[in-house]
């Protein structure tokens, strides 16, 4: 009996050591860079930027807060994700609800839209299948979206080894991850410079890649996602003002998107009218200051310039809303 007690004691000591070491090194990891999306999982925010990678790269929360000329709370979080991790749906809406403090009634919510936000693989015919598909996304795997340090994120989404917390991470030197969730893509970092030839090559590669992807990965616009997009708008209206925003992109990519989903603009306009929100369409704003580095995503200066433009348009709308303006759909005016 004594032998058994000693054995169980040893097992418990080892189990505690294992758990303690795991927690310690997880904590060490969270003190530094965890991953591109980690800051999106650490705190609540009254104002959110939503959508997919275009919003993730293209809207800078800090610039937005600084440029908004309205008496609103100014803490923004970019809660848009890369790699199809946040298409509109029940899962994304549930995550969004967790990010907003319950008491918020004067928030600003920017809903970035692109065909990717509303797509689902063709093989999925029912809502349940799309929902199940979405359950594999990061925002579904992590229950607690507002903890710092967020051990749950480390366990479910980190995807690498904890020794990375001790050794410096290797990641793209042109990319800066901000605590407000914005991923900034810089064209120069120290001695490293990205020239126009490289940008042209990436742009061409993206357009060709998208064209190929459309053929091999058959996807189509999902009614489920459209329904949940509307539910998202309605839910967020309970917390403040909602803006549907189509972010600038390369003309070739825009052409491709219009082939894939020609009704997109009219549908978005319909959503805006029905729900009395503003739809800001900058899709064909192809001027110099809104350039992308890869045809789809704005780089640092472009993102800041675009965010300032967006802030001006939102401010104008909100200030004019003091007068009884109900619904409006604005095309980018090129100011």
């Amino acid at each position: 009996m004594k032998e058994i007690r000693i054995f169980i004691g040893k097992i418990l000591v080892l189990a505690l050591l294992l758990a303690g070491t795991y927690i310690l090194f997880s904590w060490v990891l969270t003190r530094g860079f965890v991953g591109d999306d980690y800051p999106k999982f650490t705190h609540r925010a009254p104002n959110l930027i939503l959508g997919l990678s275009r919003a993730h790269y293209g809207i800078d929360p800090q610039t937005l807060a600084a440029s908004l000329d309205v008496p609103y709370q100014k803490e923004f979080l970019n809660f848009a994700f890369e790699k199809s991790q946040s298409p509109y749906g029940e899962v994304y809406l549930n995550a969004i609800k967790k990010k907003i403090p319950d008491s918020t009634t004067t928030g600003i919510y920017i809903l970035g839209v692109s065909p990717g936000s509303f797509s689902a693989p063709d093989r999925m015919s029912s809502d349940a299948e799309v929902f199940e598909f979405d359950q594999k996304m990061m925002i579904a795997k992590v229950e607690n979206l507002n903890a710092h340090p967020n051990f749950e994120y480390v366990r479910e989404c980190f995807g690498r080894s904890l020794y990375k917390g001790i050794l410096p991470h290797e990641h793209r030197i042109t990319t800066v991850f901000h605590d407000n969730g914005w991923e900034e893509f810089r064209l120069s970092a120290g001695d490293y410079q990205i020239d126009q030839d490289q940008i042209r090559f990436w742009q061409q590669e993206t357009v060709e890649g998208y064209t190929k992807l459309v053929k091999v990965l058959p996807e189509s616009i999902s009614d489920y996602r459209l329904r949940w997009f509307e539910k998202t708008i309605k839910t967020l209206q309970g917390h403040g003002e909602v803006f549907i925003v189509r972010i600038p992109m390369h003309p070739d990519l825009l052409k491709l998107e219009e082939q894939i989903w020609p009704e997109m603009d009219s549908l978005m306009t319909g959503f805006a009218k029905r729900n009395e929100v503003l739809y800001l369409n900058y899709a064909d704003a192809v001027e110099e200051r809104f350039q992308t580095y890869d045809a789809s995503h704005l780089y640092s200066e472009s993102a800041k310039a675009f965010t300032r433009q967006l802030a001006r348009d939102i401010s104008d709308y909100l200030n004019s809303k003091k007068k009884p303006i109900l619904t409006e759909v604005r095309e980018y005016s090129g100011r």
Binding site: L18, T21, Y22, F25, V154, R155, E156, F158, G159, R160, S161, L162, Y163, I166
Partner: peptide
């Protein structure tokens, strides 16, 4: 195990 496991489940 703690440091070198790949957190992929």
């Amino acid at each position: 195990i703690v440091l070198f496991s790949v957190n992929r489940q």
